[in-house]
Write a protein that binds this DNA or RNA. Structure first.
Length: 833
RNA sequence: GCCGAGGUGGCGGAAUGGUAGACGCGACGGUCUCAAAAACCGUUGGGCAUAACGCCCGUGCGGGUUCGACUCCCGCCCUCGGCACCA
């Protein structure tokens, strides 16, 4: 029986629940129920389900989940929820990277203990994460500032130390005057502290290092990880592998302990063009080589260089300077005696700290030679070179000239041949150098993991026995920064018996870089309660490596590089059986507002009031709707209206009573088929878009489906069965993005708790295929008509239909059709003359 | 300087060789209302126009490949991110 009533009549007569959508009324309710019933608790194994580890970079507990955090964590949560509804057993944990300077600085500023400050912040953030509707398993929460966690930093450090992967060494370190600590090279941006922007100065001191360079080549190998190319390129550049030759100049005439001076070059083909040698001011041979009459000048120059900041010294704009040592080096290949200079454009920390000066074929050497009147000798001839003086250094390959027996060779071959000779004559060797240096991880501050080492006058550097761990951070400390660790002023901490000889000795007082904590936290999440080891091997086996890692690109050469190093080191220590921590990585973009960075001071956007006003679901969806997640988005309050309307429409649709619709509905009327088609199509689109993190088009597709449902309801010729099926689909597909409203409507439409344990609907490709398609008819590539044709139209039929079109006839006229193109289901193109 | 990403309506964006501008915001017009808001419906790239389901132009700029280019190729410009005296 068919009944068609007016829309008003149907609405007022049959709607079961006319409640307005009120986020405040439902969101807390469901958050509490999810918590109570442990919906997001993740066992290590669930029969019949594969595991999926969805990890998002954990935050520093600044005290507030700001809107940038929302952008990051809402997207990550939606993806994790999507995977859960695809049928995976999903581990999506949350914790806090809770050691670090801000807590200590707050302690200095307002006299709160860093631990109190940190834990208060964590409490607030945990509350905010709940209000966001995230699906974390809080039973697995970890905080890195607790002894339960940091003792394992110490444990791993000791394993690394035994293996020679951690060592102490004296040298020039990056010192931040404002943070009052050293920082690693990765944490210096444009010569300034990554954290506070203060210019970094070099300071000579004892520091602890992880031997990350031992893995340089392996770290370059990234073919097997599915990461954004951008990050791979950044790591590649950072590691900076370059292949060259160590080449020795003879300085035996000076009777020093060293009879030769080694330079590193990637352009050994230019070696016959060497007209000088430059040493870094810090080079150990400078002292011995400097001749008496040059001593004063050289000393002044070195002092000057030492006072110059790193940022200035490495500026490409700066004019190159240098002074002569008065000494000469002999090029063993041609016996020439060339002057040795000191110049601060040569870095002590790269290669050998000494370079051979080839002004004709190196830009820097060229300007240096011009300035100091040094000879410029061409040894690589450009094609068609007429022998005249060069205007600038010639860097490209060419033909060897003035190069003894190598004359006439292409310079590319020259590199190999000359290197062979050098190796045969034992005056140098092939060598690979890296730009990356070892990871300097000791910090002169309080709020971090104490390095478990004891310094003994008789036994030297002695590791704390594993059984004595953790070396606890003393609760009381004088936080005022003095340039050395506050721990150094704590006699109770510093005085310890040497584990070796039992004599009084001193503890190491530096603490660890917080990047140590985050280098292995993904392992700890697998078994966060484990008391006997950093992680439990079986749990690690079931969860790692991380299937999907999510977070910002700003960690490309810090956290992401360190974590890869840790994993490889742990593998070699036989603690894990894989070499990469994160199989897939996705970087979300940056959220901005009014084309400007969001900042607490100048451009604020606090989430809590927004949640009060619109509800968490609306904020989550709006953030995901702004644009593709990897490209970031531009927030504007106005745009929220669109999401509000959409969610209200979903609420309205799901609240209608479909019993007044056609009751014979087996889904075979035209209208039913159309709605079914749309809903299957949408399912296909949404699942594909979720997979690729295209949340914005996911929502667009769902909005279109809502529009279609409203039109179909209006026309009234659909069945209750198809209607209900479509409502169900909309709720399921919306659930990862807007978990609360989906749960509420799921219950209201008579389903059992919880929607988040239900699998996403599948789709039927056949049902999702259009029966009638629009075929575009082009004449010479311009659209002239559109034809509605059956989906299974043949090529010939399509051409016939196109020919029959009046509009086409008007264009073709008497012209000759020289070519016809048919793209099945899409278009016909006639090429006419 | 080198490497990477990007440039599409008033705005956020969609479409990766086949109908450019999906979806949303805003704006304009309408319905409802005493009125307004909300809600709902319609229009909305620019120009021409005899007003036609009509024509021309249009995806940073200039060339090219192709029946057909936002999409591929070459050369530039601009924005953002990374690296930068690395020998």
């Amino acid at each position: 029986m068919t009944t068609t009533r007016s829309r008003q009549e149907r609405d007022s007569a049959t709607t079961i629940d006319r409640d307005r959508y009120d986020p405040a009324a439902i969101e807390t309710k469901w958050q509490e129920r999810w918590e109570r019933e442990g919906v997001h608790r993740t066992p290590d194994h669930v029969p019949g389900k594969d595991n999926w580890y969805a990890l998002v970079m954990f935050p520093y507990p600044s005290g507030d989940v700001h809107i940038g955090h929302w952008y990051q964590y809402a997207g990550a949560d939606a993806h994790a929820r999507f995977k859960r509804m695809q049928g995976y057993n999903v581990l999506h944990p949350m914790g806090f990277d809770s050691f670090g300077l801000p807590a200590e600085n707050a302690a200095i500023a307002s006299n709160v203990h860093p631990r109190i400050y940190t834990e208060t912040n964590i409490d607030n953030m945990r509350r905010q994460f709940r209000a966001m509707g995230t699906s974390y398993d809080w039973d697995r929460e970890l905080t890195t500032h607790t002894p339960d966690y940091y003792r394992w930093n110490q444990f791993l450090f000791l394993r690394f130390y035994e293996a020679g992967l951690a060592y102490q060494s004296r040298g020039f370190a990056n010192w931040c005057e404002s943070c009052q600590t050293t920082v690693a090279n990765e944490q210096v941006l444009d010569g300034a502290c990554e954290r506070c922007g203060t210019v970094i100065v070099r300071r000579e001191m004892d520091q602890w290092f992880f031997r990350i360079t031992a893995y340089a080549d392996e770290l370059l190998q990234m073919d097997d990880i599915d990461w954004p190319n951008k990050i791979k390129v950044m790591q590649n550049n950072w590691i900076g592998r370059s292949q060259g030759v160590d080449f020795q100049f003879d300085i035996s005439e000076y009777g020093l302990a060293e009879s030769s001076l080694t330079t590193f070059t990637t352009r050994i083909d230019t070696v016959y063009g060497v007209t000088f040698v430059v040493l870094a001011p810090e080079h150990p041979l400078v002292e011995g080589l400097t001749q008496p009459e040059q001593r004063k000048t050289v000393r002044e120059y070195i002092d000057q260089a030492a006072r110059t900041s790193e940022i200035e010294r490495t500026s490409t704009e700066r004019e190159k300077t240098g002074v002569r040592t008065g000494a000469f080096a002999i090029n063993p290949l041609n016996g020439e005696r060339v002057p040795i200079l000191v110049g601060d454009y040569v870095l002590a920390t790269y290669g050998t700290g000494a370079v051979m000066g080839v002004p004709a074929h190196d830009e820097r050497d060229f300007v240096f030679a011009k300035k100091y009147g040094l000879e410029i000798r061409v040894v690589i001839a450009p094609d068609g070179w007429d022998g005249s003086d060069l205007e600038e250094a010639y860097l490209a390959p060419g033909t060897q000239i003035n190069s003894a027996e190598f004359d006439g060779l292409p310079s590319r071959d020259g590199i190999e041949k000359i290197t062979d000779k050098i190796e045969a004559d034992d005056i140098g060797a092939r060598r690979i150098t890296y730009r990356m240096r070892d990871w300097q991880f000791s910090r002169q501050r309080y709020w971090g993991t104490p390095i478990p080492i004891i310094h003994c006058d008789s036994c030297g550097t002695v590791p704390v026995p594993v059984t004595d761990l953790p070396v606890r951070l003393p609760d009381e400390a004088q936080f005022k920064p003095t340039g050395r660790s506050p721990l150094a002023d704590d006699p109770d901490f510093i005085n310890a018996a040497c584990p070796h000889c039992g004599e009084p000795a001193r503890r190491e007082t530096d603490t660890m870089d917080t990047f140590v904590d985050s280098s292995w936290y993904h392992l700890r999440f697998a078994s966060p309660q484990e008391a006997e080891a950093p992680f439990e091997p079986q749990a690690v086996k079931s969860w790692l490596p991380v299937h999907q890692y999510m977070g910002g690109a700003e960690h490309a050469v810090m956290h992401l590089l360190y974590a890869r190093f840790f994993t490889k080191a742990l593998r070699d220590l036989k603690m894990v059986d894989f070499g990469e921590p994160y199989s897939r990585l996705f970087n979300q973009g940056l959220l901005i507002k009014d084309h400007a960075k969001i900042s607490k001071r100048s451009n604020p956007l606090a989430p809590d009031p927004l949640v009060d006003r619109y509800g968490a679901d609306t904020i989550r969806c709006y953030l995901m709707f702004l644009g593709p997640w990897d490209q970031g988005g531009d927030w504007s309050d106005d745009g929220l209206a669109g999401i509000t309307r959409w969610l209200n429409r979903v609420w309205d649709l799901a609240s209608r009573d479909p019993s007044g619709l056609l009751s014979n509905g087996s889904g075979d009327s035209d209208a039913d088929r159309e709605l079914l088609r749309m809903s299957h199509k949408t399912t296909r689109r949404v699942v594909g878009d979720f997979e690729r993190f295209k949340f914005n088009t996911t929502i667009a597709a769902l909005m279109e489906l809502v529009g279609e449902m409203n039109r179909r309801w209006e026309s009234g010729s659909i069945s209750a069965a198809v209607w209900s099926d479509t409502v169900e689909r909309i709720l399921l597909l919306t659930a990862p993005l807007a978990p609360h409203i989906a749960e509420e409507l799921w219950e209201r439409t008579g389903h059992t708790f919880s929607i988040h344990n239900v699998s996403l609907p599948g789709w039927n490709d056949e049902l999702a295929t259009d029966e009638v398609i629009t075929v575009v008819v082009q004449i010479n590539g311009k659209v002239r008509d559109r034809l509605q044709l059956s989906v299974d139209v043949t090529e010939e039929e399509a051409f016939e239909a196109a020919f029959a079109s009046e509009r086409v006839k008007a264009y073709t006229g008497d012209s000759e059709i020289v070519r016809r193109i048919y793209i099945p289901g899409k278009l016909v193109n006639f090429v006419i003359r």
